[in-house]
Amino acid sequence: MRTEELIRLMAEDAPGVARLRPAVLSAMAGGAVFSALLLVLTLGLREDMAVMLFSPRVAFKLAATLLLAGLACRLALLAGRPGVALAREARVLLLPALVLGAAVLTELAVLAPGVRMQSLIGAHAGFCLFFIPVLSAVPLAALLAMMRRGAPENPAGAGAVAGLAAGSIAAAIYAWHFTDDSPLFVATWYLLAIALVASAGAAAGVRLLRW
């Protein structure tokens, strides 16, 4: 086919543009709504949430997971765009890292040495590692499907960012049910669960996000 003829074809297809941003946004919103409903319908919200919302540890847990989810979603919106330096943009993740680090230090300072280990291990560590990935499955699948419209320069990195976004959306939802509120617990088990989802996203990205 002559190049001129190919161009004629493409010009006639001008309205067939698949915009990346609304597609990725709808995947995030749809995935988050699905997983929130899944939590509410299976486990429900924590019964004392109305009161506990104002306790510093619970408020911190909710705010920190929401912050991470917001920043990770922002990265996921950029990950499919060629010409965007993703590694540089990823530096915003230092912010939640610093916030969490400060909370861990504060917690260590206020807790008696005897209860530190207990706070870290919590009551539902295994369930956290199980349920955050479960809550992230649909958001991750939706995100990867929509990011196929993108053109990531690094498919593994883009997949990892999708996993990070899905995992932190799931963590921000999970935090509304479970009662392990210590920053020590969040910094250990929540992050481990999110890292699992990010690794799964990276592995999927290598296969799904090439273009």
């Binding site: 190049t3 493409m10 990346l20 993108g150 273009w211």
Partner: peptide, 13 residues
């Protein structure tokens, strides 16, 4: 032609 097709199919990014 290959680059043109990539530009075309990925212009929404």
């Amino acid at each position: 032609q290959e680059v043109l097709l990539a530009v075309h199919l990925k212009r929404g990014t």
